[in-house]
Amino acid sequence: MKDVKAAINKDRREFVKKVLRGSIAGSLFLVLPMGGEGSIQIPEQIPGIRGKEYDMSKQRFAFIVDITRCIGCGSCCVADKREYDVPDGHYRTWVERYIKDFDDNVYVDCPNGGLDGYQKPRTDIPGKIRDTFFVPKLCNMCERPSCVQVCPVGATFKTPDGFVLIDKDYCVGCAYCIQACPYSARFLNPKTKTADKCTWCYHRVRKGLLPVCVHVCPAKARKFGDLNDPESEVSKILASPEVITVLKPDMGNHPALYYKGLRREVV
């Protein structure tokens, strides 16, 4: 850590910039400068990202949503909106509530995308409720993304490390990708006038931090991790006999977003 301290003293402003860019390779800690001489060291949330050159071609990440654990608090939605200043009425991630009665009627709602949580029970359901659960939704980071296929200018793309991202300085805002996404994960951001969507917090992952929705989830319903690491929670879940599925498999998009305990009513 000595050289880090020396770097801070040498050119504080430059150091801060570097830290925020996450470009100090070799450090196992994300170092946050503090007033005076001190600094905070934030441990890795995803083991194995820091401390070496990040090789995009060698990464494999997976996101697992555990339906059996989601409590519908909406923390993920709130954190996401704050992290990205998502304009009202548009959602990078949202949480749906499913209610199923004994006649197989399915009632789904998602007031304000789940931003306010689910504070009141539904009172408009006539039948006897059989089952009820929450389903968080976000970008599926497809292996074969429809949005990338249809983008006319190459402003949305799949990175070598498997993230589907948007080049906001290049997007023309034609909204074709929004039409093509089978999961309705995309929207046209009225501030930037470009397409926008969940990035699985690429900027956090590259710094060894979990996506912000995973980090704030109090119920551990959202899990993110490295599939190259056999000890990671996601590797273990995917290797277990749990029922793991993806959304709309018939679309042929092969999402990297898995759902644990997903019911057949969910689309």
Binding site: P152, G154, V172
Partner: peptide
Amino acid sequence: HLGHPERNWEMLITPNPTSAM
């Protein structure tokens, strides 16, 4: 309709071969 009509030239400069548009 475009959110960024001033970028329309990108369609001619870097047309995505897999895009129907």
